[in-house]
Computed example of a mutant assay.
Amino acid sequence: MSKTTRATLALQKAGVAFRTLTYTYDPSAERIGLQAAEAIGADPRRVLKTLMAQVDGKPVCVVVPSDREVSMKKLAAAFGGKAAQMMRPAEAERLTGYVVGGISPFGQKRAVPTAMEETALAEETVFLNGGQRGLQVEVAPKEACAALNARVAALVA
């Protein structure tokens, strides 16, 4: 497995310090983020999942702890919209250039507005997908937010 991806290159370009971790990706896992947390031995609240959604029909990227669910109402409000819904997997792959299970908020093919769950900023470091299945990057959440130009909001149900 290559530890150099569009995501790691984007982090380097942004000057964000990070550490990579690899694990055996389980394609049959019911919840990918929780499987990643278990595989790397991290608390699920520190392993953030990257989700692609739409607010009022416009694409957005959402980063929340792997053990929580996104509130569509809070997500829409975070972007000043009325309605939010999850993006279809095929559309998320086309838009980001990554495959489901390997979608990173960093280095997406097309940059879209991003929001991060506010509770993640209480952690010293968090883990995010590194741009391929089985690769996580450990970063300071405030640095990740800055690199993504992400808005911070209460996003979980």
Rank of each mutant, 00 (worst) to 15 (best):
residue 76 A to D: 07
residue 114 T to G: 01
residue 33 G to L: 05
residue 41 G to W: 09
residue 126 V to C: 02
residue 62 V to M: 11
residue 118 E to K: 15
residue 86 M to T: 03
residue 79 F to C: 01
residue 66 S to E: 03
residue 108 Q to L: 11
residue 39 A to E: 05
residue 68 R to H: 11
residue 130 G to N: 11
residue 28 S to L: 08
residue 64 V to Y: 01
residue 72 M to L: 15
residue 143 E to L: 06
residue 69 E to V: 04
residue 63 V to L: 12
residue 123 E to K: 00
residue 142 K to S: 12
residue 58 K to N: 10
residue 69 E to W: 11
residue 62 V to C: 09
residue 91 E to Y: 07
residue 119 T to A: 07
residue 131 G to Y: 11
residue 16 V to Y: 12
residue 142 K to Q: 13
residue 55 V to D: 08
residue 103 I to S: 03
residue 55 V to Y: 14
residue 128 L to P: 04
residue 15 G to F: 07
residue 133 R to M: 14
residue 47 V to F: 07
residue 50 T to D: 00
residue 58 K to A: 15
residue 16 V to M: 09
residue 82 K to T: 02
residue 41 G to P: 11
residue 71 S to G: 11
residue 72 M to D: 00
residue 136 Q to K: 12
residue 68 R to A: 11
residue 57 G to D: 14
residue 116 M to I: 14
residue 137 V to D: 09
residue 90 A to H: 13
residue 107 G to N: 13
residue 96 T to Q: 11
residue 38 E to P: 00
residue 89 P to Y: 11
residue 48 L to I: 12
residue 121 L to N: 01
residue 127 F to V: 06
residue 97 G to P: 02
residue 78 A to I: 00
residue 89 P to I: 04
residue 97 G to A: 09
residue 92 A to C: 10
residue 27 P to H: 04
residue 116 M to G: 01
residue 93 E to M: 09
residue 18 F to L: 00
residue 119 T to N: 04
residue 64 V to T: 06
residue 85 Q to F: 14
residue 78 A to R: 05
residue 68 R to Y: 10
residue 11 L to F: 00
residue 28 S to N: 06
residue 131 G to V: 04
residue 14 A to H: 04
residue 138 E to H: 06
residue 130 G to A: 07
residue 113 P to E: 01
residue 63 V to Y: 05
residue 131 G to C: 09
residue 109 K to F: 05
residue 103 I to G: 02
residue 112 V to G: 02
residue 141 P to D: 06
residue 102 G to E: 13
residue 36 A to R: 08
residue 79 F to N: 08
residue 124 E to D: 14
residue 117 E to F: 11
residue 73 K to N: 06
residue 38 E to G: 13
residue 35 Q to A: 15
residue 116 M to N: 10
residue 81 G to W: 09
residue 54 Q to C: 04
residue 132 Q to L: 15
residue 115 A to E: 05
residue 48 L to V: 01
residue 104 S to G: 13
residue 75 L to Y: 07
residue 19 R to G: 00
residue 47 V to I: 02
residue 141 P to Y: 08
residue 33 G to K: 06
residue 42 A to R: 12
residue 29 A to E: 02
residue 48 L to H: 04
residue 85 Q to W: 08
residue 81 G to T: 03
residue 67 D to Q: 14
residue 14 A to W: 03
residue 23 Y to K: 05
residue 46 R to H: 01
residue 45 R to D: 12
residue 100 V to E: 14
residue 94 R to N: 10
residue 74 K to I: 13
residue 22 T to I: 05
residue 106 F to G: 11
residue 89 P to S: 09
residue 130 G to I: 07
residue 135 L to E: 15
residue 45 R to I: 09
residue 51 L to F: 12
residue 40 I to P: 06
residue 54 Q to M: 06
residue 21 L to T: 02
residue 88 R to L: 13
residue 47 V to N: 04
residue 92 A to F: 07
residue 78 A to T: 03
residue 130 G to Q: 15
residue 121 L to H: 02
residue 142 K to W: 10
residue 14 A to R: 09
residue 17 A to Y: 13
